[in-house]
Amino acid sequence: MADPSPLAPTVLLSQSEINRINAELARQIAPLIDDDTVAAVLLTGGLWFGSDLTRALYREGRNVKFDAVWMSSYGDDKQSRGKVTVRAPFQRSMEGKTVLLIDDVLDTGLSLVEAIRITKEAGAARVLTCVFARKPCEHERMTPDFVGWEAPARFLVGYGLDHQGGMRGLPDICALD
């Protein structure tokens, strides 16, 4: 058995609350998109949210295409390094499409701003943005079209959010500070 983390996570948002937020986001987004929309998740942290959101959209009658762009601005640090590294681009054409960019948390906004730029350069006709959580930021770089939860200014783990690659699989969103 692995040694437990020296810091015990504090639950901030339960799995049932996460599910409720995803359902509400899908109700808001579904009328604005169609089945040709590409739901593009920012990897790696956004994968959990992207999976749940696209299933919630399906329950709202939208069978979107799925893609991902693999980006990183944190590495194993607790703060952004101040630059975004693109590790793998989109796999399908974005030309003329509506693209829904999906990310786990908006903190500095660097990754999402870069993803918007890449998506527009790829020829998307329209780009919508959705983040599960938005943390307070003194200098907000952009405002997402959809925000599920206004998160506190704490170090978050679980539901795709990690601490040095671990704790992503926690079903709740927790603070680790």
Rank of each mutant, 00 (worst) to 15 (best):
V127S: 06
D104V: 09
I116Y: 08
G82V: 00
R141M: 12
V86N: 11
V113K: 13
V84L: 12
D52K: 08
A40E: 04
R154V: 10
Q79A: 14
D145G: 00
I102N: 02
G82P: 10
R92A: 11
S111E: 01
V86T: 15
T129D: 08
S111K: 01
N19W: 00
D67K: 02
P31R: 01
V131F: 06
A133S: 13
S93F: 00
A56W: 06
P89L: 00
V113P: 15
W48K: 03
T129Q: 07
D107G: 05
V86W: 15
F90I: 06
L13Y: 02
I102L: 09
L47A: 15
D103H: 09
M142Y: 14
T143C: 13
S16I: 01
L57Q: 03
V69N: 03
I33V: 14
G148L: 09
L32M: 14
V86G: 12
P144L: 07
K135E: 03
G148E: 00
H139G: 14
D35L: 10
R126A: 09
T143I: 09
Y159A: 01
Y74N: 11
G82T: 06
A68L: 10
K83W: 11
R154T: 11
G46A: 06
V113F: 06
L101E: 13
D36Y: 06
Y58D: 14
V84H: 04
V99G: 11
D145V: 02
W70V: 10
V86R: 15
L106G: 11
K78H: 14
F155K: 10
V38F: 05
M71K: 10
Y74R: 13
V147K: 04
Y58T: 04
G46Q: 07
F155T: 10
D52M: 00
G96Q: 15
W70D: 15
G158L: 03
M142W: 13
Y159G: 01
A68H: 11
G148V: 00
